[in-house]
Design a binder for these strands. Sequence first.
DNA 1: CACGCATATGCCTCTACATGTATATTAATC
DNA 2: GATTAATATACATGTAGAGGCATATGCGTG
Lengths: 103, 103
Amino acid sequence: MFSTLAALAEPNRFRIVELLRSGPRHVGEIEKRLKLRQTQVSKHLRVLREAGIVVSTVDAQRRLYELRPQPFRELDDWLEGYRSYWEARLDELETHLDNSRTE
Amino acid sequence: MFSTLAALAEPNRFRIVELLRSGPRHVGEIEKRLKLRQTQVSKHLRVLREAGIVVSTVDAQRRLYELRPQPFRELDDWLEGYRSYWEARLDELETHLDNSRTE
DNA sequence: CACGCATATGCCTCTACATGTATATTAATC
DNA sequence: GATTAATATACATGTAGAGGCATATGCGTG
């Protein structure tokens, strides 16, 4: 869970994930689309791979990267525990806090 | 969104959030329950506060910290965009990837 | 108003990580 | 088999962040 969150917390990795949502991509595609250096892309993909967020499949001399659903499911499962919490407060719109808020 | 993810990616902050899920707590309570130093707790709470994950209300010389629902809703909304993605693959169980997986 | 309790902040250190540059690896092509 | 394309890795550098320690701030109580 931590590795998932940490991986997604980095802006460029987040962009990569968002791009991969539209379908698998080669490293070179990611590089061009997001205007990143090749080494940056490879390194970020490594972090994403080690976090289980993507998998790569060999495609000739290139590699195709693709999202794995599992970490997203896990995140969703974790959030599930908070859903009751925030849904209970939907109507309040947090106005009861705005009065005495510190910041 | 990044500040939310970054805040949650830190293990001790994650524990604080998990603790607060059961209800608002004072700093001292968090300190004892999670066996952290007071300054650690205060600093982590600051990060969580700046990320909009918690709010503090003054309670005499103490401060009561409480979760805000909004960041969780935002995370959920973001995940929503991936739900169709992973639900489409629920049946496959990713077996089609295990064959050629690189790692 | 002096003291004590609860919490926040400043400073220091250490480690982790993001980037850049150079180079290694692997596969396709001639 | 030498060359080129696609990707990965090693090394160096800068910077942000987490923890520890000391101290400041704020509030209540005597």
